[in-house]
Write a protein that binds this DNA or RNA. Sequence first.
DNA 1: CGCTCGCTTGATATAGCTCAAAAGCTGTGG
DNA 2: CCACAGCTTTTGAGCTATATCAAGCGAGCG
Lengths: 216, 216
Amino acid sequence: MNALVRSEASHRNSTIAVGPRPPAPVFAKPQPISFFTSNAEIYAQGETAGNFYRIEFGAVRIYRLLSDGRRQIAAFHLAGETFGFEADLTHHFFAEAIVATCLCTHRVSAGETLSQDLLPLALRYLARAQKHLLVVGRQNAVERIAAFLIDIADRQGGLEHIELSMSRQDIADYLGLTIETVSRGLTKLRDTGFIKFHGLRVLDICKPQALRLMCE
Amino acid sequence: MNALVRSEASHRNSTIAVGPRPPAPVFAKPQPISFFTSNAEIYAQGETAGNFYRIEFGAVRIYRLLSDGRRQIAAFHLAGETFGFEADLTHHFFAEAIVATCLCTHRVSAGETLSQDLLPLALRYLARAQKHLLVVGRQNAVERIAAFLIDIADRQGGLEHIELSMSRQDIADYLGLTIETVSRGLTKLRDTGFIKFHGLRVLDICKPQALRLMCE
DNA sequence: CGCTCGCTTGATATAGCTCAAAAGCTGTGG
DNA sequence: CCACAGCTTTTGAGCTATATCAAGCGAGCG
């Protein structure tokens, strides 16, 4: 299965208050900033919720575990995105920093108008998760990897240049594959000229149209 | 693959206005009721959105297609649930009645306070979709079927008695399996005494604890 | 009574998993 | 600047769970 022991690298990072900041564009008041090192836990499944977070820089994985250690990453969140709000006051997932990450924390109590801002966000994430279900449920390995690359490229500004913050294991656990299958898929996409590597986690999409067609 | 042609059974049902009704508990005004026969389309991917729907009775599947016909059902909605709202004004999925279904239509323009009601709903569906990702991405066939049965049982009131409104093909497309694998999985659960059939789509869960344990 | 349709069962094929090892990278210390 | 250790990633070989293809079965219906 997929029962790797990853936990020892994943302990809570101390929150570093860096003081007041200029107002964020969407939410009213200056809020505390906290910093997380790579693999630091932001919150755990079962923990009390109540805050949500805007990523100033870095990247975050949202995931769940089965009792035998199998992991599914439900979402990646990149710089600029807001995450961590829940329907009830409990977190149903784990959240960890993928790389060194800086978060701006917001309290839910801060204002009632927040739900006005949060609803479109929640709906976007819902559509994203449900689209990802099609990828994981019905596409083969290479199609899943293609869909992942297209998604990241679009979210990094629509360029064909990609800088991955996550490991092959993270990608595998996001796509419902093994690390070996992800590696073989990327190799196949490279050998067929769809992508070009400039380092393990840096690559260009050479045939964006064709790659898009592959996962429709 | 899974390229069945299902489309000929799926054309728009005429909306039957049954006149004003007593106010729904959550939303303010009486709203038009419409009726859909089994397999009737409620809305299509790409269509303009703007309404949302409460299921008075019946059941609905929310799904997406790949160009070659592979289908992934992203969610089932049962009686009492509300669905169909979107972040932008476009539907990103198809919605069809699974059985004879009666919907109460609400216009988004009806009131600004709606987002207060819709946010927790959206968040619950988001958590549901992301949990389902773990099932589809990391669990084997029998575990997926067990998780599906537990989910339906919980949503039908927590009883151990289940009446499925959906076909084996719908279940397969929800779980990312083939119809044959679903059938074999159900047979295995029956033969090992976890469930007992009282008809093709009617069954009891005999060992709820053990079944739950199977998909954790 | 004989269709049709949805479901089950059987036999075989294969995509992706598992296990194993090699090959790159990165950082550290001499 | 090189050597070595500890990672992550890639590559290889064989195995297995599930898909695919095909046939049979049973309930509902004209």
